[in-house]
Design a protein around this nucleic acid. Structure first.
Lengths: 342, 342
DNA sequence: TTGTAGGCGTTATCAA
DNA sequence: TTGATAACGCCTACAA
């Protein structure tokens, strides 16, 4: 039913070949012909069939991203900004973005990745929430399939990525809290299998040592990157015989839960207890109180990741394949420093 | 490079036809042959080429969704839950989800939709944030292209959708506030071109009249569905000579901004001033204080929308094409009613 | 129950 | 500068 290249060619009394080349901007077609072709294409609403083009070119002209979503309705730890960044950059290059979601390490996840790769539905994949012993990394590397990630992998696994230095960021936050006089600083992390957990915990520990603050295993608890997880973890900390005076969360979502828990105890976050976040791929929005955190340019990173991926796909040289951005500390109300609002 | 159906057929000493039918579950193939084929397919990691299949079947086996994102980094008013719902349901049916983002009514948006439709990249489209005089609706209807929406259209435009009754929801909220003794109840809406703005404003006005509360044009202001917009709009309201005692927001994000504004005036939301939200396609997460709002089963709606769309695509009968869910009121701290936290 | 053959709409090679 | 032709990988009517 939709108009195809033959309809167009017949109407113009030209060969299919010529029409195809005129539209793809080849040089060996007369300006006049090109003009006519383009005009007619517009008029008839012609747009090449994706499938036919893909089949012929052996290229999907699409990239894939699978949301690592622990549960359908539970805090997916990826932000819309990230997705928008991927989508926009893909679209800008006339690529599609294919999206699914699956719980980390589930059979479903394996199925989805295999479908993308083996069905050649996409030419490349974007990974986020990289894990220790990440089967996705192994699989893609072994298959020689192009991919980029939002974090580095475990030592040994080398692949292209763009990230903000988690370890350094955490150290900056600890340092900031220590300067406020805090010595009992707790950390609420995420699942142990996450690279960001490894890094941020390491940064926390480094910071504690450097600041000469108290190192106590009881001050290190586990959440799940969600606000609900942060809420529960904060309860545990507040129930300690000697509770911390500052709570650092692995990400902003967790911190939101912490703030809630503090409120529920009739305490004031930022006054009775300092709270910090870390704005990984979680969303950044108005928080109450405003959260002291590390800035994370999610949209830009997503956008750059796609650019990188496209270069990889097109076998162009990628000048910088491992990008580590320096963290930027955002000091706000939640760490007890008075701020004025704009 | 990837294994195709011919490789598989050769290895098995079977014809391509037989292999194809064995995998597609046709009945006219012997159980033994089927077993061998499936086994070999698994072993060789065969998965049919998407493009070839699409071309042959004249079906993209994909659905599209374009995020209506006012700005890259500014409060995209659609939640991940919605996207996850679309993606999961699509994947469950072996369909892909194609995703992009574009500002409402922009040239970019037009380009993206046209690409999807004319390039036959998808078989159907999911619309959200339906607008008055929505060119997308006109375009898709006129093109006879299958689509479903997350809200009804303007009177006259009939197409399949699933929504929570906005008008009724707002009336419930107003009623709730009136019962708390509020008479000066304000409303912060969104862009006038949105159907949800029309509906929720109408529900607000109905509720005000029904409750005999004060109807004052100054109590009706405009935001942009984002927390930042809510913050600004709330400032305007709080600056009034006679400010309202309750502020209703068109969505939860806006309400978050309102809460912040109230805090910044050293007032306590839920005590000095009641606040309500409305959880449309915005995200639901821990808010502080917990927001009195209308529940919106975003994930389920997204999921059902895809099911509906697939039926449409496959020309199956859709039993209910216009689904209006009854709103559920969630009363929490922000409207001044004491709650106990679990 | 299995195989042969044609064609989906492009792009690319080669010849005119 | 333009045109005829083949091929991408799959599905399916039809034949065996």
């Amino acid at each position: 039913m939709p108009v195809n290249i033959r309809d167009l060619a017949e109407r113009l009394n030209l060969s299919i070949t010529t029409v195809s080349r005129a539209l793809d901007g080849y040089h060996d077609v007369s300006p006049e012909t090109r003009r006519r072709v383009i005009e007619a294409a517009q008029e008839m609403g012609y747009s090449p069939s994706r499938a036919a083009r893909q089949l012929r070119k052996q290229q999907a002209e699409a990239v894939g991203f699978i949301l690592p979503a622990p549960m359908p309705r539970v805090g997916e730890p990826t932000s819309l900004e990230f997705i928008a960044g991927l989508g926009d950059q893909a679209a800008a290059n006339n690529y599609d973005l294919l999206l699914s979601s699956a719980p980390p390490d589930s059979d479903e996840e394996k199925l989805l990745y295999r479908r993308l790769v083996q069905g050649r539905r996409v030419d490349g994949i974007v990974l986020s929430r990289v894990r220790l012993h990440d089967w996705r990394v192994d699989y893609l590397l072994q298959a020689g399939f192009p991919f980029v990630a939002a974090e580095h992998g475990e030592p040994g696994a080398t692949f292209p990525y763009i990230e903000v230095d988690s370890k350094a960021g955490m150290r900056m936050l600890v340092d900031h809290l220590a300067r406020q006089g805090h010595r009992r600083i707790a950390f609420i992390g995420g699942p142990a299998y996450l690279i960001i957990q490894m890094d941020r915990l390491a940064g926390y520990l480094d910071g504690i040592v450097a600041a000469g603050a108290i190192h106590d295993e009881r001050y290190i608890v586990t959440g799940d990157l969600s606000a609900a997880g942060g809420y529960r973890a904060a309860q545990t900390l507040l129930d300690l015989a000697v509770p911390p005076t500052a709570i650092m969360a692995i990400n902003d979502r967790t911190a939101v839960g912490v703030v809630r828990a503090i409120h529920d105890r009739k305490l004031v976050p930022g006054k009775d207890l300092a709270v910090t976040g870390f704005d990984g791929l979680g969303d950044s929005d108005f928080k109450e109180p405003e959260l002291t955190t590390i800035d994370y340019p999610v949209y830009q990173i997503a956008s750059r990741l796609v650019m990188m991926l496209l270069k990889l796909i097109q076998h162009e040289a990628v000048d910088e394949a491992q990008v580590v951005l320096q963290p930027e500390l955002l000091v706000r109300d939640s760490s007890g420093v008075e701020q004025s609002h704009g």
